[in-house]
């Protein structure tokens, strides 16, 4: 349940900087990264390999000491804690890994019990909690299976149950679906969303997969070269055609150039006066410009219909006029080819 007595974000990162120094080289892995995740929200952190995602997750959990900056969870700056205090603070996080990282020597039930053993729960409480968690992730019938006997998706479900075991406030998911196929990815994402809705837990997902962000994130941070490039509510970021996330999350397969003039148009911007594909084509035809749709990607993301269209003009001399018209309608046209 969401604890309403505690105000403020579940997780606040302020100016987190990590510099790796070796003789002769200096690498800034994180460059003044700040982010704030309200309780019960799903926040996606995206970026290419080497963008600093892994370093960020290691700094968040105190596995790596940042060069400067703060990581505040429940009013405590994790970066200042050591020893027993740090171990106690780590229990505020439940971590889900790409490869689940389950112990082969333990059954599914005993894997889920491990964080409870570490936290000193007694046997009876552990057993009851494990049964509850197995039920939550839909694996009650596989309690006594070892990880080797479970599918990748089932292993990840056990991983999620284990992460939730000691009732953390924040579920930290490090590429949770990157090793899974598309159908399994869908079921794991649905589970994460359901957990957020039912338990009110805060979720931070680190991923390189645009589909993960599209499907479950409320807010998103794009990292590049260790710095925050873009950040905001998913609906807002994605509807803004000037953002990189807009392009990455709404991939448009562009047809090969064949000499025709094409205009790229953004659909779903809150200021736009036209909100549908038909409306855009009609707007141009109304002014005597012969136009057709060459390609389009339309998605419903964060409850908002957003898309990118490629409009093909029959006559190149109408380009300027078409662009002006679309611009007036706040559709952010760009000449594509």
């Amino acid at each position: 349940m969401v604890d309403h007595s505690q105000t403020g974000p579940a997780l606040a990162v302020r100016d987190l900087t990590k510099v790796f120094e070796t003789p002769g080289s200096r690498v800034t892995a994180l460059d003044a990264v700040s982010l704030s995740v309200p309780r019960g929200e799903i926040h996606g952190i995206v970026g290419r390999s080497g963008a600093g995602k892994s370093t960020l997750i290691r700094c968040l959990t105190g596995l790596e000491l940042p060069t400067s900056g703060e990581v505040v969870v429940a009013g405590e700056d994790i970066t200042r804690l050591r020893g027993a205090e740090l171990r106690a603070a780590r229990r505020r996080f439940g971590v889900v890994y790409q490869h689940a990282n389950l112990l082969d020597s333990r059954t599914a039930a005993d894997n889920i019990a491990l964080p409870l053993e570490v936290a000193g729960w007694d046997r009876g409480d552990r057993d009851a909690r494990v049964a509850e968690l197995l039920d939550l992730v839909g694996l009650s019938d596989r309690a006594q299976s070892h990880p080797g006997q479970l599918s990748g998706g089932q292993q990840q479900r056990v991983g999620i149950a284990r992460a939730l075991a000691a009732r953390p406030e924040i579920l930290l998911c490090d590429e949770p679906t990157s090793a899974l196929d598309a159908a399994t990815t869908g079921s794991i994402l649905a589970l994460l969303r359901e957990l957020r809705d039912r338990l009110g837990i805060t979720v931070v997902i680190i991923t390189h997969e645009p589909s993960v962000v599209r499907e479950i994130c409320d807010a998103v941070t794009l990292l590049g070269d260790g710095a925050v490039l873009e950040q905001g509510r998913l609906g807002e970021v994605i509807a803004d055609p000037s953002t990189r996330l807009h392009r990455e999350l709404i991939p448009l397969v562009e047809p090969e150039s064949d000499g025709l003039v094409r205009l790229q148009v953004a659909l779903g911007h809150p200021d736009a006066t036209v909100g549908s594909i038909d409306g855009i084509i009609a707007l141009l035809r109304h002014e005597g410009i012969e136009a057709d749709l060459a390609a389009a990607t339309v998605e419903t993301i964060a409850g908002r219909r957003v898309g990118r269209l490629l409009v093909e003009l029959a006559d190149a001399s109408t380009t300027e006029r078409a662009r002006d018209l679309l611009d007036q309608a706040r559709l952010h046209p760009e000449v594509a080819a």
Partner: peptide, 13 residues
């Protein structure tokens, strides 16, 4: 695997 050790460390082990 170091991932298993890291997972336990993150549980506060």
């Amino acid at each position: 695997s170091s991932g298993k050790v890291e997972a336990a460390t993150m549980m506060g082990a």
